[in-house]
């Protein structure tokens, strides 16, 4: 290796993965989606407050880098299973915010034609097999989708999102074990935001690092900073490539934090204001990513302002689409219970 090449290699080692792996255009696209997730959820929250959305919702504000970093190496026909905190996953996998808003508003133009709402948001055509109202409910389903991919030899990889709460469910253990013994193309992603509703991982989970549980299933397990897009994308790329090579599953733990409560009923009595403010001020994934993009000359202040403006317009149009879309008729209540009743 020449001296120049050595110097270039050493320099490259200091450049974060994402800035080596993706083009500036792609990175600006990631920033766009980060803002899109954030503003989508703020828009959903605002619509809820105005009484336009009923029920409840689980916001992932503060976790955007995890969803986007994990989905970064996925192809269009790769699949994901998601969680009750799944808006970010859905957008990261390619969903449109207008149809998501329409679903939250209970309209026929929504991804689930108004039958699912926030907790069952899905976009099957983009490979999102659905959020899930049951903690750990999607984990075995992801393993089944991966078994399909292996049997059909179609090269697909399945990403299975779940939270720290799910890692204490029996389904987690059963699923990781089966995926490992059958060497299935699945990547398990534990988004550890520190709390299963009100119960901290310190109080609920015997191991400090959830990724350590991978050892019990003879698969690689890594813990990454879930608020660092590049770190998440790097871990995901390694795991997705391993899965695609037919070498089996991996477990990634992305350590992150939700700025909002568990759901709309949360009074935040189990954590301090100081803790929340500290995460917002010091470890907001969007602030961190924007600083990095500027540091490596990918975008400037004006560019960031343009991204924000474009997202605002997309969100406003999405809410308008949802408001003006038709609601399902009461007579259609039994549709989709069975395939023939459609």
């Amino acid at each position: 290796m020449s001296a120049t090449a050595k110097k270039a290699a050493a320099g490259a080692a200091n450049v974060p993965f994402a800035f080596r792996a993706y083009t500036p255009d792609q990175l600006r696209g990631v920033l766009h989606k980060m803002h899109l997730i954030r503003k989508f959820e703020e828009g959903a929250e605002d619509s809820y407050t105005r009484g336009l959305i009923h029920g409840t919702m689980h916001l992932s504000i503060g976790q955007e880098a995890s969803a986007l970093g994990i989905c970064a190496p996925l192809k269009a026909d790769d699949q994901i299973t998601s969680t009750h905190r799944g808006h970010g996953h859905c957008i990261a996998k390619g969903a449109q915010v207008d149809r998501m808003f329409a679903e939250f508003f209970g309209k026929t133009t929504g991804y689930c034609k108004g039958r699912g709402g926030s907790m069952h948001i899905a976009d099957v055509s983009a490979g999102n097999l659905g959020a899930n109202g049951i903690v750990a409910g999607g984990i075995p389903i992801a393993v089944g989708a991966a078994l399909s991919a292996k049997m059909q030899k179609n090269g697909k990889v399945v990403v299975c999102f779940f939270g720290d709460g799910a890692n204490n469910e029996g389904a987690f253990h059963e699923s990781l074990n089966m995926a490992a013994i059958w060497k299935l193309p699945v990547v398990f992603v534990c988004e550890n935001n520190g709390y299963g509703m009100s119960t901290s991982t310190a109080r609920s989970t015997a191991v400090e690092r959830i990724a350590d549980r991978a050892a019990a299933y003879a698969m690689p397990g890594v813990t990454v900073n879930g608020n660092d897009f590049s770190a998440v994308a790097e871990a995901s790329t390694t795991a997705v490539e391993r899965a695609r090579r037919g070498e089996g599953p991996s477990l990634i733990e992305t350590k992150t934090y939700r700025h909002r409560g568990h759901s709309k009923s949360d009074r935040n009595r189990y954590r301090t204001k100081e803790e929340i403010e500290e995460w917002k001020a010091m470890r907001d994934p969007i602030n961190l990513f924007e600083a990095e993009l500027q540091q490596f000359g990918v975008i400037d202040e004006a560019g960031i302002a343009a991204v924000r403006a474009a997202v605002e317009a997309e969100i406003a149009a999405g809410i308008e689409f949802a408001k003006t879309s038709p609601a399902p008729a009461a007579a259609e209540g039994l549709n989709f219970v069975y395939t023939e009743l459609q």
Binding site: Q79, T81, L129, G137, I139, P140, I141, A142, V143, G144, A145, A146, L147, S148, A149, M151, Q152, G170, A171, H173, E174, S175, N177, M178, I181
Partner: peptide
Amino acid sequence: PERVIDMPISELGGAGVAVGAAVTGMRP
């Protein structure tokens, strides 16, 4: 054995695997 699969004693997980396979093009 790839089409007649002996699964571990994992009824919950196994049932979910069958659900996941069914929605992605198989007939378990």
